[in-house]
Design a protein around this nucleic acid. Structure first.
Length: 274
DNA sequence: ATCTATGCCTGGTGGC
DNA sequence: TGCCACCAGGCATAGA
């Protein structure tokens, strides 16, 4: 599912295709994707000109002259950039026609994704964005931020890393990879982590995310018609989805457990509770 | 404060 | 071309 690296790859891929394009028509085939009144939303989208695309955490931010479209892909959201004559897949729920005649089509099998149009001035007051935490990359300049957050709670460290009000961008897959790399047990209470351990976690998060972004970038050539979310990082996974396989570091069999209701993969030898 | 349950959805899977 | 129950999961929301 799209986490920070996949969303960043989508952003990088879409931006050059969309900048300066004007939306000439919009179709909504599944209104629940749209936050608020979708009829009003459609009217508001017409004539918008793309200025740039930003990203914060897992949110894509399509920036127009005065407004911003906040888009979350959730589990399976994808964008297609296609001609009007191409067949419309049954999982396409929103279609933007552009001034160059191409269409940007939003595809989402599970229909969990969302789109919300807001004014630039209210962007960071919007409910979905208002309480978000920091990008992991920001923490290079704030080395104690995660340690301080962890000191404040007895929650399991995996739940803390998934909490978007603390850090943005990590989802279930990357959290497992980050904890494995940092050699920390996902169920360890956050307030028992040392300052050094939180520093190692930050370093691991940045390294994993950067590597994944780099690998997402390598698959640009496959985005000629389908955009986003099929990078090559799945080939780099060390523990996630590896139940029953050997740990790459020590050979111990990888386990799958439930942590906070989420499927969680770990090496029980490398990742020990304190 | 923090956890759990529910809803939003569909495709894949395992059991029969 | 079998059918069905169940699971996966990000986030909002409600209730414990």
């Amino acid at each position: 599912m799209p986490e920070l690296p996949e969303v960043e790859t989508v952003r990088q891929t879409l931006q050059p295709l969309l900048v300066d394009q004007i939306i000439t028509d919009v179709q909504v085939r599944w209104p629940n994707i749209i936050v608020g009144d979708y009829v009003a939303w459609m009217k508001s989208m017409i004539e918008q000109r793309f200025v740039r695309i930003d990203r914060f955490g897992k949110y894509l931010l399509f920036v127009f002259e005065n407004d911003v479209l906040i888009c979350h892909l959730r589990m399976e959201g994808k964008f297609y950039y296609q001609t009007q004559s191409e067949e419309i897949n049954k999982h396409v729920h929103v279609i933007f026609t552009l001034s160059n005649g191409m269409q940007l089509r939003y595809h989402d099998v599970r229909k969990f994704g969302t789109m919300e149009l807001v004014s630039k001035s209210s962007l960071w007051k919007t409910k979905s964005l208002a309480k978000l935490g920091k990008e992991p990359f920001e923490l290079e300049q704030k080395p104690d931020y995660l340690f301080q957050k962890c000191q404040q709670t007895k929650r399991m460290i995996k739940s803390v890393l998934l909490d978007q009000t603390i850090l943005v961008g990590l989802g279930n897959i990357y959290v497992d990879e980050v904890l494995y790399r940092a050699k920390i047990h996902p169920e360890q209470a956050a307030n028992t982590l040392s300052k050094n351990q939180t520093a190692v976690l930050v370093e691991a998060a940045i390294a994993v995310l950067n590597k994944a972004i780099a690998l997402g970038g390598t698959t640009i050539r496959t985005y000629q018609s389908t955009l986003g979310v099929d990078g090559k990082f799945q080939n780099e996974l060390q523990v996630h989805t590896k139940k029953g396989e050997s740990c790459p570091r020590c050979g111990t069999i990888i386990e799958k457990i439930k942590v906070g209701g989420r499927g969680t993969y770990l090496c029980p030898n490398c990742q020990r509770m304190e």
